[in-house]
Computed example of a mutant assay.
Amino acid sequence: MGSFSIWHWLIVLLIVVMVFGTKKLKNMGSDLGGAVKGFKDGMKDGAASDAPATPPAGQVANSQAADKTTIDVEAKQKS
């Protein structure tokens, strides 16, 4: 009861083709393929631009870039 034979799957496929038609199934297949291709291209582009151009907010790249009016809260609390 748990597994289906090849005949079960062929009957299901025949019913799906009869309900949707071959043209609609072809269009759905090409749309799905285009979506997968777009996803892969997006992942490839995202991996190439992972290196951030600027440091994340709240972090300073070097001590010279720090603003002179910035107060170090942790240092002020320790004093």
Rank of each mutant, 00 (worst) to 15 (best):
V12Q: 06
T22S: 10
A61D: 10
K26Q: 14
A66M: 15
K68Y: 04
T22A: 13
D72H: 05
G46I: 00
G38V: 00
A57F: 03
F4K: 08
L13I: 11
P55L: 05
V16W: 04
A48V: 02
A47D: 02
K78Y: 07
A48G: 01
V36D: 01
E74D: 12
V73H: 05
I6P: 06
W7N: 15
V60Y: 11
G38F: 00
A66G: 14
W7Q: 15
I11E: 14
D67K: 10
G21L: 00
I15N: 08
S79R: 14
V73P: 05
W9G: 03
T22Y: 06
S79A: 15
S63F: 12
A65G: 04
S5C: 12
I15Y: 07
L10T: 10
K24W: 10
G46R: 00
V73W: 05
Q64K: 12
V19L: 15
A65Q: 08
Q59C: 13
A61V: 06
P55C: 11
G33E: 13
K44C: 04
G34Y: 02
K26S: 11
D72I: 04
P56V: 04
D50M: 08
T54R: 03
V12G: 08
T22N: 10
M18E: 10
T54D: 02
K23H: 13
T22K: 08
K44I: 13
K24N: 13
S79W: 06
A66K: 11
K76M: 09
A65R: 05
G46K: 00
V17R: 08
I71H: 02
P52L: 01
G34V: 01
L14A: 15
N62D: 15
T69E: 11
L13M: 05
V36R: 03
M18W: 12
W9M: 09
A48D: 01
F4P: 04
Q64W: 10
S79Y: 06
A57I: 07
L14D: 13
K26I: 13
A51H: 01
K68E: 09
D67A: 15
L14P: 06
A35I: 04
F20C: 08
L10V: 09
G42P: 03
M43Y: 01
F39Y: 11
S30V: 13
G58H: 00
S63E: 14
A65I: 09
L32K: 08
K78R: 12
I15H: 07
F4H: 08
G42C: 06
A57Q: 05
L32D: 02
S30H: 05
L25S: 03
A65T: 12
V19Y: 14
K24T: 13
D45K: 12
V19K: 14
I71N: 02
G58L: 00
M28Q: 13
A35E: 05
F20G: 02
A47T: 01
A48T: 00
A48L: 04
K23V: 09
S30T: 15
L10G: 03
A66R: 14
P56A: 13
D50H: 01
D67Y: 06
I71A: 03
G58C: 00
T69P: 04
K23N: 14
W7F: 15
D41C: 11
K44W: 02
M18A: 13
D72A: 05
A51E: 01
T70M: 10
P55H: 02
A53N: 00
